[in-house]
Amino acid sequence: MANIKSAKKRIKVIEVKTARNRRIKSAVKTAIRRFEEALTAGNLEEAKAKFRFAEKKIMQAAAKGTIHKNAASRKVAKLASKLNKAM
Protein backbone atom coordinates (compact mmCIF):
# COMPACT_ATOMS: atom_id res chain seq x y z
CA MET A 1 0.00 0.00 0.00
CA ALA A 2 1.19 3.49 -0.84
CA ASN A 3 2.26 5.86 1.92
CA ILE A 4 2.53 9.09 -0.04
CA LYS A 5 -0.66 11.11 -0.41
CA SER A 6 -0.31 11.60 -4.18
CA ALA A 7 0.29 7.88 -4.69
CA LYS A 8 -2.89 7.09 -2.72
CA LYS A 9 -4.81 9.50 -4.94
CA ARG A 10 -3.38 7.91 -8.09
CA ILE A 11 -4.57 4.50 -6.87
CA LYS A 12 -8.11 5.86 -6.42
CA VAL A 13 -8.08 7.60 -9.80
CA ILE A 14 -6.85 4.44 -11.53
CA GLU A 15 -9.64 2.40 -9.92
CA VAL A 16 -12.25 4.85 -11.21
CA LYS A 17 -10.78 4.89 -14.73
CA THR A 18 -10.48 1.09 -14.78
CA ALA A 19 -14.15 0.72 -13.81
CA ARG A 20 -15.16 3.21 -16.52
CA ASN A 21 -13.09 1.45 -19.18
CA ARG A 22 -14.53 -1.91 -18.12
CA ARG A 23 -18.10 -0.58 -18.53
CA ILE A 24 -17.32 0.88 -21.95
CA LYS A 25 -15.62 -2.31 -23.19
CA SER A 26 -18.53 -4.39 -21.92
CA ALA A 27 -21.01 -2.18 -23.79
CA VAL A 28 -18.96 -2.53 -26.99
CA LYS A 29 -18.76 -6.32 -26.67
CA THR A 30 -22.51 -6.56 -25.99
CA ALA A 31 -23.34 -4.39 -29.01
CA ILE A 32 -21.12 -6.54 -31.25
CA ARG A 33 -22.63 -9.76 -29.88
CA ARG A 34 -26.20 -8.49 -30.48
CA PHE A 35 -25.29 -7.51 -34.04
CA GLU A 36 -23.85 -10.94 -34.75
CA GLU A 37 -26.88 -12.65 -33.21
CA ALA A 38 -29.21 -10.64 -35.47
CA LEU A 39 -27.02 -11.50 -38.45
CA THR A 40 -27.01 -15.24 -37.74
CA ALA A 41 -30.79 -15.14 -37.24
CA GLY A 42 -31.06 -13.80 -40.78
CA ASN A 43 -32.85 -10.61 -39.76
CA LEU A 44 -31.10 -8.07 -42.00
CA GLU A 45 -33.14 -5.01 -41.02
CA GLU A 46 -32.47 -5.61 -37.35
CA ALA A 47 -28.81 -6.37 -38.14
CA LYS A 48 -28.46 -3.00 -39.90
CA ALA A 49 -29.85 -1.21 -36.86
CA LYS A 50 -27.60 -3.20 -34.53
CA PHE A 51 -24.63 -2.43 -36.77
CA ARG A 52 -25.25 1.31 -36.53
CA PHE A 53 -25.54 1.03 -32.73
CA ALA A 54 -22.38 -1.09 -32.47
CA GLU A 55 -20.46 1.34 -34.68
CA LYS A 56 -21.57 4.22 -32.47
CA LYS A 57 -20.46 2.45 -29.29
CA ILE A 58 -17.10 1.47 -30.80
CA MET A 59 -16.38 5.02 -31.96
CA GLN A 60 -17.41 6.42 -28.57
CA ALA A 61 -14.95 4.04 -26.90
CA ALA A 62 -12.23 5.26 -29.26
CA ALA A 63 -13.09 8.89 -28.59
CA LYS A 64 -12.76 8.32 -24.84
CA GLY A 65 -9.42 6.58 -25.30
CA THR A 66 -10.61 3.21 -24.04
CA ILE A 67 -9.58 1.57 -27.29
CA HIS A 68 -7.22 2.87 -29.97
CA LYS A 69 -8.83 4.60 -32.94
CA ASN A 70 -7.21 2.17 -35.40
CA ALA A 71 -8.55 -0.79 -33.40
CA ALA A 72 -11.99 0.81 -33.47
CA SER A 73 -11.83 1.30 -37.22
CA ARG A 74 -10.70 -2.30 -37.66
CA LYS A 75 -13.64 -3.58 -35.59
CA VAL A 76 -16.14 -1.48 -37.55
CA ALA A 77 -14.67 -2.62 -40.88
CA LYS A 78 -14.90 -6.25 -39.79
CA LEU A 79 -18.57 -5.84 -38.81
CA ALA A 80 -19.35 -3.99 -42.04
CA SER A 81 -17.73 -6.78 -44.03
CA LYS A 82 -19.90 -9.36 -42.25
CA LEU A 83 -23.03 -7.29 -42.94
CA ASN A 84 -22.17 -6.85 -46.63
CA LYS A 85 -21.53 -10.58 -47.05
CA ALA A 86 -24.93 -11.36 -45.54
CA MET A 87 -26.74 -9.06 -47.98
Rank of each mutant, 00 (worst) to 15 (best):
residue 74 R to G: 04
residue 67 I to P: 01
residue 35 F to G: 02
residue 29 K to W: 07
residue 61 A to V: 05
residue 80 A to R: 15
residue 57 K to Q: 12
residue 85 K to Q: 14
residue 51 F to S: 09
residue 75 K to N: 10
residue 51 F to I: 05
residue 31 A to H: 06
residue 85 K to N: 14
residue 68 H to L: 07
residue 13 V to I: 10
residue 79 L to Q: 03
residue 51 F to M: 00
residue 51 F to P: 03
residue 18 T to R: 15
residue 42 G to A: 09
residue 40 T to M: 11
residue 8 K to P: 10
residue 7 A to Q: 05
residue 32 I to R: 00
residue 12 K to E: 15
residue 67 I to K: 04
residue 18 T to N: 11
residue 16 V to C: 05
residue 28 V to L: 05
residue 48 K to F: 02
residue 18 T to L: 10
residue 55 E to N: 10
residue 9 K to I: 13
residue 24 I to A: 03
residue 62 A to L: 02
residue 60 Q to T: 06
residue 40 T to R: 13
residue 45 E to N: 12
residue 74 R to E: 09
residue 33 R to D: 07
residue 31 A to V: 00
residue 44 L to C: 06
residue 48 K to G: 13
residue 30 T to L: 11
residue 60 Q to N: 13
residue 50 K to V: 01
residue 27 A to S: 07
residue 59 M to S: 02
residue 7 A to D: 12
residue 60 Q to R: 15
residue 71 A to D: 15
residue 27 A to K: 06
residue 73 S to R: 00
residue 42 G to I: 07
residue 14 I to C: 07
residue 75 K to A: 10
residue 72 A to P: 03
residue 6 S to H: 14
residue 15 E to R: 15
residue 83 L to F: 00
residue 25 K to F: 03
residue 61 A to K: 02
residue 32 I to Q: 03
residue 77 A to H: 08
residue 67 I to W: 01
residue 23 R to Q: 13
residue 35 F to K: 00
residue 20 R to H: 10
residue 85 K to F: 06
residue 47 A to K: 01
residue 21 N to Q: 04
residue 80 A to W: 04
residue 36 E to R: 13
residue 63 A to Y: 14
residue 66 T to I: 11
residue 32 I to G: 02
residue 58 I to G: 02
residue 84 N to D: 13
residue 4 I to E: 09
residue 55 E to Q: 10
residue 32 I to P: 02
residue 33 R to A: 05
residue 25 K to D: 06
